[in-house]
Amino acid sequence: MTAPLLEIEDLAVRFDTEDGPVEAVDGLGLRLAPGEILGLVGESGSGKSVTAYAVLGLVRPPGRVLRGSIRFEGRDLLALPEAELRRVRGAGIGMVWQSPRTALNPVLTVGHQIARLLRHHRGLPPRAARERAVEMLRLVGIPEPERRARQYAHQLSGGMCQRVMIAMALATQPRLLLADEPTTGLDVLVAARIMELLKDLGRRTGAAILLITHDLGTVAESCDRVAVMHAGQLVETAPVRTLFRDPVHPYTRALVAAIPRVDREVALEPIPGAVPSLLHAPPGCRYAARCALATGRCRQERPALLPIAPDHQVACFAAEPVA
């Protein structure tokens, strides 16, 4: 196995709210190989986005990283000074946010915004940066890139804005792209094309992608591997085919059964209960209260994430770990 590009170990992020501390991410471990697309899925409140913020070093008070390490190309991002981190963030890691329109600067043309990134992070002279910006817009499939480069965010459609965001994220040729719900709120046709574009660009530039989403369909169609989060903890991780063919953790199975789908007739089965409040997180398995298979042990003791097959790990007492 190649050396991982991103390796997260035992990450814990806590938010000190008015009502008490909330451990939004608790003991998370992830590995991402170069060129790999990893899907991070779960309901809202599962800690997916907080994980992305932690990788970018953007957890701000009242939140803080409690413990753990985030190694990117061998360097622990949590130990880096702010200036160093900013360089990594700009050049090594790209970010595609959920709402592209608000993430773009409304008073600068989109071409200008991309060019500015190129000047700062790659040291291109202004003229070359401008030309490269137009090229980036062409790369992400925007028609008439010269004209579009001179426009502002409000003159572009939602799909276009998302393409611009992707162009910005890729402008500095990052080795890792974090995409937080990149297609949520977009129409299906536009969403499908954005996902095609991301996959294609990943293949071409060799960038790894951490795709954060609640949409299992998107995961199935785009990812190589999947990590399922529930209430701040990782409950299962497996290659995409394994995960959809033999999901082991009861939560993973419940997630798949809870969505209507266009490809076959299914009986909808909602996941019982809700993500437990992390204010007073239960001592045992955080899924126990929602789980039909839960036993007394599940409520007392927290199951560790253990391998049950090569590259397939599950945090559940009901799963059979390999010796």
């Binding site: 019982p272 809700a274 409040s277």
Partner: peptide, 9 residues
């Protein structure tokens, strides 16, 4: 089932 959904204080 629904009461289990956390409601803000």
């Amino acid at each position: 089932a629904d009461i289990a959904e956390a409601a803000p204080p």
